[in-house]
């Protein structure tokens, strides 16, 4: 990958982040209902409201505040929570790690499960196995992740006692036990995605198998499996990686929701309470951070794909 390409991609990322942060900031400026009412209650005097507005910086023009907010955010300062007597970054610190850990485990599960399974399904030529994979995949894809989470809690937690729902330990306290607990919510997020990724990989393998270079590979005496692994796989993985990157956003969203099912105190739960409390500095910060994660994942996937497919390096 050339330097020019990287610079271009990075510029695009920055532009995306500017747009996202702008909207995140804008959204909470145009809403009815002043946060001061929430903090002081509806019976506050006009003077105390004005004083609080000045203290929170709400009395200055919009663009000044946006610019100030974004420059502070770049230094890791997202302002102070309206509700908790803490800075937003303090509030986020531990929770962000938890959510990122959960997302990473889920992502890893998707890659580790779907690519070998997709390959196995493509290697096996029995129409019955093929059909079974299709039907099973169709079914799994239709189950909402949080419902899988509920089922896992019920089955593995309450019936089989493999884990104790509701006893999540922060990774900072006991990393091992934390990860073990997170395996279940990660599985809930991963399962439907595994089915989707498998479907994607199978169809792209199917498309690649009809290409001319496959015939060439056969003509050199390669077996079907050798052709599949040595020639087709790398070609077929490229669109699959792009697909995985596209779903990165949904995986992050999945983590946010699944935290509620498994009572994990991560960024998702914080987001929910902040939305209920109209604690906008926190919501803004979470929005921007999650978007940044998604954008970074996309960037990494782009680089990975350029390593896999040399033709992409030209563009």
């Amino acid at each position: 990958m050339t330097m020019k390409n990287i610079v271009k991609k990075v510029l695009m990322m920055i532009l995306t982040m500017v747009i996202v942060s702008f909207f995140a900031f804008l959204a909470f400026q145009i809403i009815p209902g002043d946060p001061t009412t929430k903090i002081l209650g509806s019976e506050a005097t006009a003077e105390s409201v004005a004083a609080l507005r000045a203290e929170l910086g709400l009395d200055r023009p919009f663009f000044v505040r946006y610019f100030e907010w974004i420059t502070n955010a770049l230094q890791g300062d997202f302002g102070r929570s309206y509700i908790y007597n803490m800075s937003v970054s303090e509030l986020l610190q531990g929770k962000l790690c938890v959510t990122m850990l959960l997302t990473a485990i889920a992502f890893l599960m998707i890659v580790v499960l779907s690519i070998p399974l997709g390959l196995a399904a493509a290697s096996c030529r029995s129409p019955w196995v093929d059909r079974a994979f299709t039907v099973l995949g169709q079914l799994v894809m239709a189950v909402p992740p949080f419902f899988i989470g509920i089922l896992l809690t019920l089955l593995c937690g309450l019936v089989l006692h493999w884990f104790d729902p509701g006893t999540f330990i922060s990774p900072a306290d006991d990393f091992g036990r934390s990860v073990v607990y997170l395996l279940y919510p990660a599985l809930a997020i991963a399962l439907p995605r595994v089915a989707m990724t498998m479907k994607m990989l199978r169809s792209s393998i199917g498309g690649e198998m009809n290409k001319d270079y496959v015939r060439t590979a056969y003509s050199r005496g390669n077996t079907r499996l050798a052709t599949l692994y040595r020639h087709v796989l790398r070609n077929a993985v490229v669109p699959t990686v792009a697909f995985l990157a596209m779903t990165a956003a949904d995986i992050v969203a999945g983590s946010v929701i699944i935290e509620q099912v498994f009572a994990i105190s991560g960024i998702g739960r914080l987001l929910l309470t902040s939305i209920s409390n109209r604690d906008f500095p926190v919501v803004q910060a979470i929005v921007v951070i999650l978007a940044l994660v998604v954008v970074l994942v996309n960037f990494l996937a782009d680089i990975l794909n350029q390593r896999l497919d040399p033709r992409l390096r030209l563009q």
């Binding site: 001319d212 270079y213 060439t216 020639h231 790398r234 490229v238 896999l308 497919d309 033709r311």
Partner: peptide
Amino acid sequence: FQEPMTAMNPVM
């Protein structure tokens, strides 16, 4: 083969 462009594996 006829088409050298497509007869070769593009990522190898």
